[in-house]
Deep mutational scan, measured.
Amino acid sequence: RTVITEEFKVPDKMVGFIIGRGGEQISRIQAESGCKIQIASESSGIPERPCVLTGTPESIEQAKRLLGQIVDRCRN
């Protein structure tokens, strides 16, 4: 099985929602997708915060879908 790493950007102001209380939301996304997610600790003042996704191509797609759902929910 091929493990790859891909960068994905999330809106900086939504990082708190993505991580969740005590990290529970990000842990759930990682468990559900099987993908490791590392969010940069600093956005360096830019509106997007880079995340590094590591896993199989399928797990990365699943993680991006779950992250996208959270971002959409927070935008509305």
Rank of each mutant, 00 (worst) to 15 (best):
76 N>Q: 05
2 T>G: 14
34 G>S: 08
75 R>G: 15
62 Q>D: 14
41 S>E: 14
54 T>D: 04
17 F>P: 07
64 K>T: 03
16 G>A: 11
67 L>S: 00
35 C>R: 01
36 K>C: 06
48 E>A: 05
30 Q>G: 04
19 I>S: 11
38 Q>L: 09
64 K>D: 00
71 V>P: 04
46 I>M: 10
53 L>M: 05
11 P>F: 02
21 R>G: 09
41 S>Y: 04
74 C>E: 11
12 D>Y: 06
10 V>G: 01
54 T>G: 01
51 C>D: 01
23 G>A: 11
52 V>K: 14
7 E>N: 15
62 Q>F: 11
13 K>F: 03
62 Q>M: 13
67 L>H: 00
11 P>A: 03
8 F>H: 04
48 E>S: 11
26 I>D: 01
51 C>A: 08
50 P>S: 11
17 F>H: 12
53 L>K: 00
17 F>E: 15
28 R>E: 08
75 R>E: 15
4 I>C: 07
74 C>M: 13
34 G>E: 08
7 E>K: 13
29 I>C: 04
5 T>N: 08
27 S>H: 06
45 G>T: 08
31 A>P: 01
8 F>T: 11
27 S>M: 11
58 E>M: 06
64 K>V: 02
21 R>F: 05
69 Q>P: 05
5 T>Y: 04
51 C>W: 05
13 K>L: 04
44 S>M: 10
61 E>R: 11
18 I>E: 04
4 I>V: 11
75 R>T: 15
15 V>H: 03
44 S>V: 10
32 E>I: 11
23 G>V: 04
70 I>H: 07
21 R>N: 14
21 R>L: 10
11 P>Q: 03
47 P>S: 15
61 E>K: 12
57 P>M: 06
28 R>S: 08
20 G>S: 05
19 I>E: 08
62 Q>Y: 07
64 K>E: 02
10 V>L: 12
24 E>H: 15
4 I>W: 06
34 G>Y: 02
28 R>D: 08
32 E>A: 08
19 I>M: 09
49 R>P: 04
56 T>D: 04
23 G>C: 04
3 V>E: 12
60 I>F: 01
55 G>Y: 00
55 G>F: 00
24 E>I: 12
29 I>E: 01
76 N>W: 07
34 G>A: 06
32 E>L: 11
45 G>Y: 04
10 V>W: 02
28 R>N: 06
66 L>E: 08
62 Q>V: 14
76 N>F: 15
5 T>I: 03
31 A>F: 06
34 G>V: 01
61 E>M: 09
47 P>L: 11
56 T>S: 13
59 S>W: 00
73 R>H: 14
35 C>T: 04
38 Q>G: 07
4 I>M: 09
47 P>E: 12
51 C>V: 14
26 I>R: 03
60 I>V: 12
53 L>G: 00
52 V>C: 07
61 E>G: 13
33 S>E: 01
41 S>I: 07
74 C>D: 09
47 P>M: 09
3 V>K: 14
38 Q>I: 07
63 A>F: 02
39 I>W: 05
25 Q>V: 08
44 S>F: 10
27 S>F: 05
36 K>P: 00
35 C>W: 00
24 E>D: 10
66 L>M: 11
60 I>L: 06
37 I>Q: 01
4 I>E: 10
26 I>A: 04
30 Q>M: 07
56 T>C: 07
73 R>T: 15
17 F>Y: 13
41 S>D: 10
23 G>N: 10
68 G>T: 10
52 V>I: 12
33 S>K: 00
45 G>F: 06
69 Q>F: 04
63 A>K: 00
28 R>F: 03
45 G>A: 11
30 Q>K: 04
49 R>W: 03
49 R>C: 07
14 M>E: 03
10 V>S: 01
12 D>V: 05
29 I>G: 01
36 K>R: 12
50 P>Y: 06
20 G>V: 01
67 L>N: 00
57 P>H: 07
1 R>G: 11
59 S>G: 09
76 N>I: 04
65 R>T: 13
75 R>M: 14
25 Q>T: 05
68 G>D: 14
12 D>I: 06
20 G>H: 03
65 R>L: 13
18 I>R: 02
54 T>M: 08
10 V>E: 01
10 V>K: 00
48 E>N: 07
56 T>I: 03
51 C>M: 09
39 I>L: 06
74 C>Q: 14
15 V>S: 07
60 I>Q: 00
13 K>R: 11
53 L>W: 00
69 Q>S: 14
45 G>H: 09
32 E>S: 07
11 P>Y: 02
57 P>C: 05
7 E>R: 10
53 L>N: 00
37 I>N: 01
16 G>L: 05
18 I>Y: 03
71 V>H: 03
2 T>F: 12
8 F>G: 02
43 S>C: 15
58 E>I: 03
50 P>C: 10
7 E>M: 06
70 I>Q: 09
20 G>D: 07
9 K>T: 10
31 A>Y: 08
19 I>W: 07
38 Q>A: 11
28 R>A: 13
27 S>D: 08
39 I>F: 06
66 L>G: 05
45 G>D: 13
48 E>F: 07
76 N>E: 13
8 F>I: 08
17 F>W: 10
28 R>I: 04
11 P>G: 03
54 T>F: 02
51 C>T: 06
27 S>K: 15
58 E>C: 06
7 E>V: 12
8 F>V: 09
72 D>W: 06
11 P>L: 03
43 S>L: 07
64 K>Y: 01
63 A>P: 00
2 T>V: 12
43 S>R: 08
38 Q>D: 07
5 T>S: 08
69 Q>D: 15
19 I>P: 03
24 E>F: 11
44 S>E: 14
43 S>T: 11
29 I>N: 01
34 G>L: 03
26 I>Y: 02
55 G>Q: 00
73 R>M: 10
21 R>C: 08
57 P>Q: 13
75 R>W: 14
59 S>C: 05
16 G>R: 12
30 Q>T: 06
12 D>T: 09
45 G>Q: 11
6 E>M: 07
16 G>T: 09
39 I>A: 02
1 R>M: 15
73 R>D: 15
31 A>I: 13
27 S>T: 15
10 V>P: 01
51 C>S: 02
55 G>M: 00
73 R>A: 12
21 R>Y: 04
75 R>K: 15
10 V>A: 03
74 C>Y: 06
14 M>Y: 04
16 G>M: 06
32 E>K: 10
51 C>R: 00
68 G>H: 09
34 G>P: 01
8 F>R: 01
12 D>M: 05
8 F>S: 04
39 I>D: 01
5 T>K: 09
19 I>C: 07
40 A>T: 11
21 R>E: 14
5 T>M: 05
65 R>S: 12
17 F>D: 15
48 E>R: 05
2 T>E: 14
54 T>S: 08
56 T>Y: 10
37 I>G: 01
75 R>I: 06
59 S>H: 03
27 S>R: 15
49 R>V: 10
43 S>K: 06
29 I>P: 01
11 P>C: 03
22 G>D: 15
45 G>M: 07
29 I>R: 00
51 C>N: 01
56 T>K: 04
62 Q>W: 07
52 V>M: 11
24 E>G: 11
70 I>A: 15
67 L>Q: 00
25 Q>S: 12
22 G>W: 05
72 D>N: 05
59 S>A: 11
15 V>W: 03
50 P>F: 06
11 P>S: 04
14 M>S: 05
12 D>G: 07
39 I>G: 02
13 K>S: 13
50 P>N: 14
71 V>A: 06
43 S>N: 06
49 R>F: 04
29 I>W: 01
31 A>N: 11
7 E>T: 14
21 R>D: 09
7 E>F: 15
30 Q>N: 02
37 I>M: 03
1 R>Q: 07
34 G>T: 03
17 F>L: 09
12 D>K: 09
74 C>L: 08
2 T>K: 14
50 P>I: 14
5 T>Q: 07
47 P>N: 08
16 G>C: 08
71 V>Y: 11
2 T>L: 10
15 V>N: 02
62 Q>N: 11
46 I>V: 14
15 V>A: 10
23 G>E: 12
42 E>D: 13
58 E>H: 03
20 G>C: 02
